[in-house]
């Protein structure tokens, strides 16, 4: 298999399913009991697509990312369900097989990654290390350098700076270099977990633009994970809303933002302040996220939900299709009002 040195996505034809998460259930064992961190989550990432997972801390979005990469802590158990990349189950792979896929097929840009550079090695050499470990063929030093230079240019860094040490980079530059590293082996999927959370707003904007540009140009498939729905709105085409370990709504980003069908999505949107649009009263979400050791019965959102009825306490709503590519797990989705964007 001859490898080109082009920077590209090794995914398949755009629009075909690439990564399928099916009925994934993942628990953490603790002394107090089992934490049901991911409960029956199903979604698909298509080739060339950017999707988002949004939710509050502890809702299970990062646990999903860790499950996809199989980087879970020792006390976690994948109870059931499957993760398939190009039709191949990742859950059944042994550690060595997974290690070979990890960076090569699925790479990641995680929160605070910019602080994970080893301070005593040059940035370029650290990317070179990743290439040596994960690139399927042995490259010459010259080829490696050329590839790193190309990666640097792609993420908006001056290739000459690859000779620098991490402390000589600003936070934004380091995060760009993290993206370059994530792209180094032409992955099929990039998981970006809070990629801009620690950054200032102007730098965040630059990084998000860069990621969006790369995703479009290379046809890269990216899963964005964020607590900030504004970030998700910027960069994704489809999104899932998570609450207490469950995927409660899944749909095209514009559909979820303008016509949310789950009360949680609705309240989340209603409680997000914005600098554009008319100044409006924001609706607080009362209460606190539930304890996942003993999650609420029925729908996990019912204790905080203004639409909750007896049915919500007794029965867990399944994810049902309510429109094209739009599904929601709520008994009362028809009652949730339309938002219709900020301008209204």
């Amino acid at each position: 298999m001859a490898q080109t040195l082009e920077i590209e996505s090794r995914g398949g034809k755009a629009g075909t399913p690439l990564l399928e998460v099916q009925n994934l259930v993942m628990h953490y064992g603790t002394k107090e009991g089992d934490v049901s961190a991911v409960e029956d989550v199903t979604f698909t990432l298509n080739n060339g697509e950017a999707i988002g997972l949004v939710g509050e801390s502890g809702c299970g979005k990062t646990s999903i990312a860790l499950t996809l990469l199989r980087l879970l802590p020792d006390n976690s158990v994948v109870k059931s369900g499957d993760v398939r990349l190009d039709g191949e189950s990742l859950i059944g792979l042994d550690e060595e097989q997974m290690r070979r896929r990890r960076w090569r097929d699925i790479s990641m840009v995680f929160q605070g990654a910019m602080n994970s550079w080893n301070p005593v090695y040059r940035i370029g050499d650290q990317i070179r290390e990743a290439l040596r470990l994960h690139w399927p063929e042995t490259l010459t030093y010259q080829e490696e350098t050329e590839r790193i230079a190309a990666l640097f240019e792609l993420v908006g860094l001056n290739p000459a700076t690859m000779e620098r040490y991490p402390h000589e980079f600003s936070g934004g530059m380091r995060q760009r270099a993290v993206i370059a590293m994530a792209l180094s082996c032409n992955p099929k999927v990039i998981i970006a977990d809070e990629p801009t959370t620690a950054l200032d707003v102007i730098v965040q904007d630059q990084i998000l633009r860069e990621l969006k540009k790369i995703q479009k140009e290379l046809g890269m498939s990216i899963i964005y994970i964020s607590h900030d729905i504004a970030v998700i709105a910027e960069v994704t085409e489809r999104m899932g809303v998570m609450y207490a370990g469950k995927l409660v709504e899944l749909g095209s980003t514009i559909e979820v933002f303008h016509r949310p069908k789950h009360p949680y999505s609705y309240l989340l949107l209603k409680s997000t302040p914005s600098i554009t649009g008319p100044r409006r009263k924001l609706a607080p979400l009362e209460g606190e996220p539930p304890n996942l050791i003993e999650p609420p019965s029925g729908c996990r959102f019912h204790p905080r939900c203004p639409f909750a009825t007896q049915q919500c306490i007794d029965e867990d709503p399944p994810l049902t299709t309510v429109g094209e590519g739009h599904s929601v797990a709520c008994w009362h989705w028809q009652e949730v009002p339309e938002i219709g964007g900020l301008q209204k």
Partner: peptide, 8 residues
Amino acid sequence: AVPVPDPA
């Protein structure tokens, strides 16, 4: 540079 919570 502030992201806006409206994809439209």
